[in-house]
Simulated assay, not measured.
Amino acid sequence: MTKTPDILCIGSVLWDVIGRAASHMRVGSDVPGRITRLPGGVAMNIAMTLRRFSMTPALLTTVGRDAEGEELMGEAIRMGMICDYMYRSDDLPTDVYMAIEGANGLVAAIADAHSLEAAGEKILRPLADGRLGSAETPFAGLVALDGNLTEELLQVIATSPLFAATDLRVAPASPGKAERLLALVGHPSATLYVNLEEAGLLCQSAFETSADAAVALIKRGAHRVLVTDGGKSASEGTAGDIITQTPPAVMVTRVTGAGDTFMAAHIASEAQGMDRAASLTRALNAAATYVSGETPL
């Protein structure tokens, strides 16, 4: 019998291929390092962190029936995720993300999420056909949504009755896709998790601090926001009520997945009854530990 999920993670589940080098890199650099392949994607990264906080996520995504997809689904099941609601395609290959990281941070990355984009609304079928909910009795619970979905699908979600009762937590997949989230800025239950650059893209402005960005996003119509700025301050709040904290200083050894770790730790903390300040502190500590390399992927 399928377990009842604590949260739905909707979006990209793919293989992360990451090349990391200990030296600073620039365009054209050719240096020694390590190349790893690990389960990744925004929805998967969030789900993996949620599992470390003893939550049970269900994945709503597409994974191919190719060898890569079978292996990826097997890894997700092994980690304790619910995979019964995945859309499995005979024609679409399993997506992949490739990145290069140096001592100076992320050098370049390419996210091939074409299969997720092609699957479109098919990944939402369990929310409509009665397995997880329907238009008449929508799913009432936590949903983590990632910005790798197409702008058209995000616009559908913004007004869909299937999401009318959800506690919607939203993250852009990258600064390059941040503007896709404009459709969800006015959603009455959406919490947006963005970094300073992404906040600037959504507001078509530049901000000095996370608090400034949070205020601007709320003025633009956001219900609730969390804005991070790397090792600098992070702010959380709603209209007229912003709290700001500074993460612990650590040596950065990796960056891919840090934002997803922060978001998942914050969601888990609130789900476990922690207050706003404690939830933000715990999320910042989890992200700092992650980028320091102390927590395994």
Rank of each mutant, 00 (worst) to 15 (best):
K3Q: 14
C9I: 10
L14S: 10
G19N: 06
R20N: 14
T36R: 09
T36A: 11
R37Q: 12
I46H: 10
A47Y: 05
T49W: 10
P57K: 10
L59E: 08
T62C: 15
V63L: 12
G64Q: 11
D66L: 09
L72Y: 07
E75L: 14
R78L: 00
M81T: 03
D84H: 02
R88M: 08
L92G: 06
P93R: 00
I100Q: 05
I100W: 06
G105Y: 06
I110C: 11
A111C: 13
D112T: 01
E117N: 12
A119R: 11
G120V: 05
R125M: 11
D129M: 13
R131F: 02
L132G: 07
E136D: 13
T137I: 14
F139Y: 15
G141P: 04
L142F: 07
A144E: 06
A144D: 08
G147L: 04
L149N: 03
E151K: 12
E151V: 11
L154E: 04
Q155A: 15
A158N: 01
S160T: 09
P161Q: 06
A164G: 10
A165C: 10
L168N: 05
S174Y: 10
R180P: 08
L181G: 14
V185S: 00
A190Y: 08
T191C: 09
L192V: 04
E198W: 00
A199K: 00
Q204W: 06
A206G: 08
S210W: 04
A214D: 06
A216T: 03
A216E: 02
L217G: 00
R220H: 15
G221D: 11
H223R: 15
V225D: 15
T238A: 15
I242G: 03
I243V: 06
T246H: 12
T246Q: 11
T256R: 03
G257H: 10
D260N: 14
D260V: 08
T261N: 14
M263D: 00
A268W: 07
A271M: 05
D275N: 11
R282H: 10
A286W: 06
G293R: 12
T295R: 15
